[in-house]
């Protein structure tokens, strides 16, 4: 069923048998996932499919119950979050994790400062803020911003560190149409110099960026195919509808 090309080249990310259980709930179930360097991948799946948990396992926020994660062909299972991040990973979490009490500028600068000297960090922060279209908010405290704006701030924090692997968990949530279009441009641009995985529910947004797509269901990989095939896939439609029916009930 899968159409992933199975050559044995370099992978920026591989998981094998990745499993995360919370008591009786298996949130991620035996996932074998591969991502090529520079690839842009969309990760879809109904609520509770395990997408965010998958991301947490990749970034050391959760230690997987079983299985392995290879980042740049190096095993990272059990490493601390900051160690994994310093290998070149950036993540925008589903619930924005930002520094609420300080300014937009300082948020982004602290991200750039991890890798750069004081001077360069300042320039990188300003350039990234400009690029993300939040220049007018630069002095504002992040805690006072609207949800979509906070999403952009967090994205700027991720981009300012220029990671090789970017994980974006529902980046378009809470955004206005304009903000979402800009986001799509930013994601496409970022994908030119990094591998990117985007989790989204917003179909309009997905159509703007998606090529190859992985669909999760109940913690496991359900399909991997090009976006057009996924959209036509009856089984995929059903798992989404099934979940919505469950929710409505």
């Amino acid at each position: 069923m899968t159409e992933t090309p199975k050559d044995e080249g370099y992978r920026i990310l591989r998981t094998s048998g990745l499993t995360m259980r919370f008591g009786g709930v298996t949130a991620v179930d035996n996932v074998d996932f591969e991502l090529r360097d520079g690839e842009l991948r969309c990760l879809l799946g109904p609520n509770g499919a395990g997408k965010s948990t998958f991301f947490k396992c990749l970034t050391g926020q959760l230690v997987p119950t079983e299985g392995r994660v290879l980042l740049k062909e190096q095993p990272i299972t059990g490493l601390n979050t900051h160690e994994i991040v310093n290998m070149g990973v950036g993540i925008k979490t589903q619930v924005p994790n930002v520094f609420d009490g300080i300014s937009v500028y300082e948020n982004v600068r602290l991200s750039a400062r991890r890798k750069h000297t004081v001077r360069i960090a300042r320039d990188v922060a300003e350039a990234t803020i400009e690029k993300c279209g939040i220049r007018h908010l630069i002095r504002r405290e992040v805690g006072q911003l609207a949800h979509g704006q906070r999403q952009l701030v967090e994205l700027a924090m991720v981009l300012a560190a220029s990671p090789d692997l970017i994980l974006l968990d529902e980046p378009a949530a809470g955004m206005t149409g304009d903000e979402r279009d800009r986001l799509a441009q930013l994601v496409l641009e970022a994908a030119r110099s990094a591998a990117v995985i985007v989790v989204e529910h917003d179909m309009q947004f997905i159509r703007q960026i998606a090529k190859f797509v992985t669909v999760f269901n109940r913690g496991a990989i359900f399909r991997e195919a090009m976006i057009d095939d996924i959209m036509r896939d009856r089984a995929v439609q059903e798992i989404y509808l099934g979940k919505q029916a469950d929710a409505a009930a």
Partner: peptide, 24 residues
């Protein structure tokens, strides 16, 4: 100093500080 700024960041949000690569 930047050390102090990072401390404040950790106070504000430990998860984000770690996700930026700082050893909290």
């Amino acid at each position: 100093s930047d050390f102090g700024r990072i401390s404040i960041g950790i106070r504000e949000n430990e998860t984000r500080a770690a996700l930026l690569g700082y050893d909290i």
